[in-house]
């Protein structure tokens, strides 16, 4: 038997009895970042493939939301900072070793790109829109002319942003649940799946919904595979990693994780989407909302559970 206690009576807020320094702001930010990355990726890739007329909502409508998602996500990050007035120092330093450092720079690049991208479609979506100044009109026609040139870096940065939401966590060696390289791809796929769900909700074109539905089913299957892969990897690891996996396999996060994330957030909506593709009448909102909520709850669970896991000594 082994028992450990603080004889000096340590009880530091948010550190003891277990770490809880990152609260609700971080999972919301990771969720919004993932959705934004997914939308920009789909919009960019369908433009590159020359399908922008067939996929109107994906390429033109959904990206209009992205600047708002990203700015709101950044605001969440700002709320998380405890020394808020010093936040600008993120942008007076370049520290490539720090995932949060280069993440801040990725956001600084992709947010303006997303604003330019949506600006080039505003008049197409809202025909009554008037840019008022001639210089803005010239700028808009320049943007429209070079759309393909913007699409390439945007697609690449979208993938980086999506992976970054996972790497932000996986770079912490001290938290065994997060310290796995599968977390980056897992968060990327999950972000793309939630983005596909949002596009399905927004789209009124049956054909487009069908294509995005198929993509979403594929992404959900990959995500389920990654989750199994994640847990199997932990079970084959050190004691600290086995403890991390046991939080989901009998521990305190088992019920919420398997109920809300795996079943209601992935398996059930995938079944509904398959039914819809087979021709059954399923209201599109139901699987889409389930996928979005599942993605959000997934990030809340991973952020909170990861902080509980630690090295044993």
């Amino acid at each position: 038997m082994r028992e450990e206690l603080f004889v000096s009576g340590r009880n530091i807020p948010n550190i003891d009895p277990y770490l809880n320094i990152w609260h609700w702001q971080i999972p919301i930010y990771l969720f919004l970042g993932g959705v934004a990355a997914g939308i920009l990726f789909f919009s960019g890739i369908f433009t590159i493939l020359g399908k922008d007329h067939k996929m109107r909502t994906t390429v033109k409508v959904a990206p209009l939301l992205v600047p708002f998602l990203l700015v709101f996500g950044l605001f969440m990050l700002f709320l998380d900072l405890k020394h808020k007035l010093y936040f600008w120092q993120l942008y007076t330093t370049i520290r490539l070793e720090s995932p949060m450092g280069w993440g801040a720079w990725v956001l600084m690049i992709i947010t303006p790109i997303s604003i330019l991208w949506s600006a080039s479609y505003v008049r197409e979506i809202f025909p009554g829109w008037d840019w008022k100044f001639d210089i803005l009109k010239t700028f808009e026609s320049w943007l429209i002319k070079y759309r393909l040139w913007i699409a390439w870096p945007m697609t690449i940065y979208a993938v980086i942003l999506g992976i970054y939401t996972g790497i932000l966590l996986s770079a912490f060696n001290a938290r065994p649940l997060w310290n796995t390289s599968i977390l980056g791809p897992l968060f990327l796929v999950s972000g793309m799946s939630t983005a596909a769900a949002l596009i399905i909700m927004l789209s009124k074109d049956h054909k487009e919904r069908k294509i995005m539905g198929r993509i979403d089913i594929l992404l959900i299957l990959i995500e389920l595979f990654f989750i199994v892969h994640l847990l199997m990897g932990f079970l084959a690891g050190s004691e600290a990693q086995i403890n991390a996996a046991s939080l989901f396999l009998g521990g305190k996060f088992t019920a919420p994780f398997f109920t809300f994330v795996v079943f209601l957030g992935l398996i059930f909506p995938a079944i509904l989407e398959i039914f819809e593709l087979k021709g059954f009448k399923v209201p599109v909102y139901i699987p889409a909302i389930l996928v979005l909520l599942g993605g959000l709850i997934f990030r809340f669970i991973i952020v909170e559970a990861g902080q509980i896991t630690r090295f044993l000594y």
Partner: peptide
């Protein structure tokens, strides 16, 4: 320090 908490997690 901006108080982001990354070092505390690390």
């Amino acid at each position: 320090c901006i108080g982001c908490g990354a070092c505390i997690e690390a």
